[in-house]
Every structure is written in structure tokens, then in C-alpha cells.
Simulated scan of single mutants.
Amino acid sequence: MIAFLYMAAFGTLLYFLTVYFQSVHGYGAMRTGLAFLVPMLAIAAGSQAAGRLATRHGLRPVLLGSLAIGAAIVAIVAVANSGLPAAPSPGAVIDGLQAAIAIAVAGIALTALVALRLRRPR
């Protein structure tokens, strides 16, 4: 359920950021796409790091840590009350890293759970 809610929030964020960049800041399609480039590179890096982190520290600490970082970023943006950034910011990069790690580790955990249940005798 947590993975579903997380993905629902993260998936809609990309849509609303696109609308925000184009409607509020007047970005065209190309500039909007370029605004997503840095956070998407962070997501790629986080996906690569997720397996290593989960192996070294365990699934639960890595998943909970990445979700805590995501919650902190949301709180900081809400408290700052400055709206969303008009260009990639360090917060967007950190959010991209933590999102990729959370998604990858959740996938690893679900795969391990399915494998465990398939091995149990019925």
C-alpha cells in the first residue's frame, strides 16, 4: 500500500511540475524537458545506488531512510511557502535520488517476499 501511495504521489508530481513550468513560468516543451534533466539524472544515480545500499545496510533502513528524506523535502517546501523551483534545485536532485532509492528498494523487498512465499510448502 505504501508503494502504491508513493508512486501515485510521485507520478502526479511530474505531471503537475510540467503544467507549472509551462503555465506559470511560460516554458516551452523543450525548456520544460530540460528542467527535468538534472533530477532525472539523480534518479538514474539513485537507482544504481539502491542495490548497493540495500545490500550493505538492509532493506528496511534504506527504505525508511529514503522515505524520511522525501518527507523532509516536502516539509521544507511547505514551510518555505515559496512554491516550486523554476529550475532544478538541490532539493529536486535530492528528491530524485531518494525517490529512485525508495522505488528500487521497495521492488527488491517485494521480489524477496514473493520468492519467500513461493518457497513455503502449502
Rank of each mutant, 00 (worst) to 15 (best):
M1W: 06
M1N: 11
I2Q: 06
A3Y: 04
F4C: 07
L5V: 09
L5K: 01
L5G: 11
M7N: 10
A8G: 07
A8K: 03
A9P: 03
T12N: 14
L13A: 15
L14C: 11
Y15D: 14
L17C: 07
T18H: 03
Y20P: 07
Y20H: 14
F21N: 11
Q22A: 14
S23M: 15
V24C: 09
V24P: 04
V24G: 08
H25N: 13
H25S: 14
G26L: 14
G26R: 12
Y27H: 13
Y27N: 12
G28S: 12
G28M: 12
A29R: 14
A29H: 13
A29D: 14
M30I: 15
M30Q: 15
M30L: 15
T32I: 09
G33P: 06
L34K: 04
P39T: 11
L41R: 00
A42P: 00
I43P: 00
A44D: 02
A44C: 06
G46T: 02
G46R: 03
S47P: 01
S47I: 01
S47E: 04
Q48T: 10
A49Y: 08
A49E: 08
L53S: 03
T55Q: 13
T55P: 00
T55E: 10
R56E: 09
L59S: 05
P61E: 06
L63P: 00
L64K: 05
G65F: 02
L67N: 03
L67G: 01
G70A: 12
A72S: 09
A75R: 02
V77H: 05
A78K: 04
A78Q: 02
A78W: 08
A80T: 07
N81S: 15
N81V: 03
G83V: 11
G83L: 11
G83Q: 10
G83M: 09
L84W: 10
L84V: 05
P85N: 06
A86V: 10
A86I: 09
A86C: 07
P88H: 07
G91V: 01
V93Y: 06
G96R: 01
Q98V: 08
A99F: 08
I101L: 08
I101N: 02
A102M: 06
A104M: 06
V105L: 06
V105P: 01
V105H: 02
G107Q: 04
G107L: 06
I108C: 09
A109N: 02
L110T: 07
L110Y: 07
L110I: 12
L113Q: 13
A115R: 14
L116G: 13
L116F: 12
R117E: 13
L118V: 15
R119H: 13
R119S: 15
R120K: 13
P121T: 12
R122N: 09
R122C: 08
R122Q: 11
